[in-house]
Amino acid sequence: MTLRAFLTNRRAMAGAGILVFFALLAGLAPLIAPYSPTNINFPPMLGPSAAHLLGTTANGQDVLSQLIWGSRDTLIVGLVTATLISGIQLIVGIFGGYVGGWIDEVLSMLTNIFLVMPGLPLMIIVAAYVTVKGTVPIIFVITVTGWAWGARVLRSQTLTLRSQAFVEAAQLSGESRWRIVLTHIVPNMAGILVANFFGAALYAVLSEAGLEFLGLGNVNTVTWGTMLYWAENDEALLMGLWQWMVLPGVCIALLGTAFGLLNFAVDEVVNPRLRRT
């Protein structure tokens, strides 16, 4: 029932379509990309031509190949970070909400602290202090700053579910706490979990691009964020190489839109109050 509502939801289908497109791009990069993205043996700063459909960079790399290969890192960071964030949210939110007591108080306080800390500045500071540059620190930084909001949502949802009659009935049926969490609470929150996952992925993709654009990532890897960094660094727009600057941005926006659409759509399907008639 829910699945059909999802499949007939236009936002969901649009989001899924974009996501599948980028996933194919990332998966088939070695086959599609005309050149290696790190090959610097082309003439620099070429405009679009038959050999280089999107031209080359100031370092003599093929822009189209970079764009295609760059989807890999961006997608991986988005999905891995979203998975980590969802895991933390699940543990903190459900643990606090269901167990209650001092554990909940401590976890709630922690959540609130991370909530009031402004995300981007914190991210920049942490990223600046992390000595090893690369994908892993970026994932770490985004995860640390991004879990709090969803954990709070899950906690309040857990509190609501915990007082539902069917959960109390399961208690009377002699079920242990953890079985109740696994068989009643988590499945009944599945929709919110999925929505939160896409929300976290959106957050991760945008944050990654932001950090890399500021040069806080490893500038030698090829991602859309580092492409933006180099394009900005080498004054691509002044040189008339607009495609080098604009297309990575468009890709980031599209992928972000896809995650955002999926987030909205799942929210809409599981939360009937948001459904438009």
Binding site: A165, E168, A169, A170, L172
Partner: peptide, 20 residues
């Protein structure tokens, strides 16, 4: 205790898990 004392709930809609 609960193996000897059981309860029937007021709301037949809320007392069953819709996913089970």
């Amino acid at each position: 205790y609960r193996s000897r004392v059981q309860m029937i709930f007021q709301d037949p809609y809320a007392s069953l898990d819709r996913l089970h």
